[in-house]
Computed example of a mutant assay.
Amino acid sequence: MKKIPCLPLFRKHLLALLSLLLFCQFSWASFLVEKQRFSIDNFQTHNGKTIPNVTLGWEAYGQLNADKSNAVLITHYFTGSSHAAGKYHESDAKPGYWDAIIGPGKAIDTNRFYVISMDTLVNANANDKQVITTGPASINPETGKPWGLSFPVVTIRDFVEAQKALTDSLGIKKLHAVVGPSMGSMQAIEWAVAYPEQVGKMISVIGVAEADAWLVAGLQKWSAPILNDPNWQQGDYYDKTPPLAGLTRSLATITQEAMHPRIFNQLNPQHSAMEAGPAASITQNFKVVDWLYSAAQGRASSMDANHILYLVRACQLFIAGHEGNLQNALNKVQAETLFLPATGDLLLFPEMAKQAHQQLQQAGKTSHYAEIQGDWGHLDGIYGIQQQADTIKQFLEQ
Score class of each variant (00 low, 15 high):
96 G>V: 14
383 Y>A: 11
78 F>W: 08
375 D>N: 06
333 V>P: 00
158 D>G: 06
343 T>A: 10
379 L>T: 13
308 I>T: 09
291 W>P: 07
181 P>I: 12
284 Q>K: 10
276 A>M: 08
91 S>L: 05
1 M>F: 04
301 S>W: 10
386 Q>P: 06
306 N>T: 06
346 L>R: 15
130 Q>P: 03
280 A>V: 13
180 G>E: 11
131 V>I: 04
120 T>F: 10
204 S>K: 03
290 D>I: 13
387 Q>F: 04
348 L>G: 00
360 L>D: 11
156 I>E: 14
336 E>A: 12
29 A>W: 09
55 T>M: 04
393 K>W: 03
81 S>N: 04
172 I>N: 04
173 K>L: 00
330 L>W: 14
75 T>E: 03
59 E>N: 14
333 V>F: 11
216 V>L: 02
278 P>I: 00
117 S>T: 09
257 E>F: 02
62 G>T: 04
314 A>G: 13
133 T>R: 05
363 A>I: 10
343 T>C: 02
99 D>F: 06
296 A>Q: 10
122 V>F: 00
326 L>F: 14
261 P>A: 01
386 Q>H: 09
283 T>I: 05
255 T>L: 04
205 V>Y: 02
249 R>T: 08
247 L>G: 14
7 L>Q: 15
74 I>Q: 12
57 G>A: 05
148 G>S: 13
342 A>K: 12
83 H>D: 10
389 A>N: 03
227 L>K: 15
186 M>R: 06
271 H>F: 04
354 K>G: 09
54 V>M: 10
293 Y>P: 00
20 L>R: 15
259 M>L: 15
235 G>L: 13
48 G>E: 13
157 R>Y: 02
353 A>C: 09
55 T>E: 14
23 F>Y: 15
270 Q>Y: 04
381 G>A: 12
216 V>R: 01
117 S>Y: 00
125 N>Y: 08
18 L>N: 15
394 Q>R: 13
309 L>D: 00
231 N>M: 01
252 A>H: 11
213 A>R: 02
257 E>I: 07
68 K>S: 05
294 S>N: 10
154 V>E: 09
97 Y>C: 04
386 Q>V: 14
8 P>C: 09
212 D>R: 01
392 I>G: 00
49 K>P: 01
218 G>N: 15
2 K>T: 14
6 C>V: 12
347 L>H: 00
278 P>C: 03
13 H>L: 09
273 A>P: 08
19 S>A: 11
354 K>M: 05
80 G>K: 10
343 T>R: 14
5 P>V: 05
339 F>T: 15
94 K>L: 04
159 F>H: 15
140 N>L: 02
43 F>N: 10
209 A>D: 04
335 A>V: 15
227 L>P: 07
368 H>V: 13
21 L>W: 13
103 G>A: 08
174 K>E: 00
177 A>P: 13
225 P>F: 11
135 G>Q: 01
219 L>K: 06
367 S>M: 05
373 Q>F: 02
7 L>H: 13
348 L>T: 00
174 K>L: 01
71 A>S: 13
177 A>M: 07
144 G>K: 06
375 D>L: 02
244 L>Q: 14
171 G>L: 08
315 C>D: 05
152 P>S: 11
60 A>W: 11
325 N>M: 07
51 I>N: 13
341 P>M: 01
332 K>D: 12
251 L>H: 15
